[in-house]
Design a protein around this nucleic acid. Structure first.
Ligand SMILES: [Mn+2]
Ligand SMILES: [Mn+2]
Ligand SMILES: [Zn+2]
Ligand SMILES: [Zn+2]
Lengths: 157, 157
DNA sequence: CTGATAATGAAAATCATTTTCATTCTAGTG
DNA sequence: CACTAGAATGAAAATGATTTTCATTATCAG
């Protein structure tokens, strides 16, 4: 479609100062991808993000969506998850979504993914003691701890 | 490579009665795959299992290793893991290995995977309270809980 | 405005895993 | 022992998500 990156927003892009400066440009595609992530509750596959993005701008390419999501991910704006079905899914970062740290429940029957919040593992003291245990015993520096719970959702019960 | 399944062991296959009966046959390939898993400490990719297996029997095919591992996995003899590098890795089941339940530390620098044992999450009461919390709040029946810790190993510190 | 550099999209390439299919084995059965 | 239905195997082809390549287009500092 070749028609200018930022058409529409101009500069008002709301996705972080980190990206401004350092040669990373706020383009329409990136803006749209971020916007989709921002306005979506759930966990989206690349293909799903593409569909959403194309509702606003027909000609956006799959490759660009891959690249935009990767960019947002490597800059901490979105999380990249893998629930074992052979494709990545993305969701807005915990801080941006306001959800705070959370884990996931994955139904092995219908595949539904559900956020798990307020569990013992979210508690600061738990995470803390876990990290120090790991450092003491293994000299391993924990950066990120990810928990996935597999089972049956209420539907598939 | 076409020369008889069980050559070597005959029946003495030590991999569970579950497989006997029900038409599942103890073949040489399966025996070798299981044997490799049994005598290996770590976490092996399919390709690595293939290499090991071929040290004993040249002609074993990659497809068969995939199928054997899948068979062992679906019968609970081996665990199938994914550390996010785009390929599955396998390890002997917790009961067969004697390791008991454990989690993993993954170094994001060198990729090394290390077993994590004795952490708070292994404690029975923790797992129990976690499961009941999840059941109460989400009506979700927990079958399996998996924890991965990403960070830097002692080498890459 | 212009040039250097970044971004884009289509198509091709990767790469792990799965499927297909013709061939070979196995475990009975008589 | 001779036979057979069904299981297992391996090579090759197919899949499918993600990445790479490359020619084209857009951005923006000067
Ligand atoms: Mn989530
Ligand atoms: Mn392990
Ligand atoms: Zn379900
Ligand atoms: Zn390391």
């Amino acid at each position: 479609m070749r028609q200018g990156y930022g058409r529409g927003q101009g500069r008002g892009h709301r996705w972080g100062r980190q990206l401004e400066s350092s040669g990373i440009r706020p383009t329409l595609a990136r803006e749209l991808v971020f916007s989709v992530m921002e306005s979506s509750e759930g966990h989206l596959s690349v293909e799903e993000v593409l569909q959403e993005v194309r509702k606003s701008e027909e000609g956006i390419g799959l490759t660009t969506v891959y690249r935009s999501l990767e960019l947002l991910h490597s800059n901490g704006l979105v999380k990249k998850l893998d629930f074992g079905d052979g494709r990545a899914v993305f969701e807005l970062s915990d801080t941006l979504s306001g959800k705070g740290p959370h884990q996931h429940l994955i139904c092995r029957s219908c595949g539904q993914v559900q956020d798990l919040t307020g569990s013992p593992v979210d508690k600061e003291d738990f995470a803390g003691s876990m990290k120090s245990f790991i450092r003491e015993k293994y000299r391993f520096t924990t950066e990120n701890m990810e928990i996935k719970v597999y089972g049956l959702c209420s539907e598939c019960g």
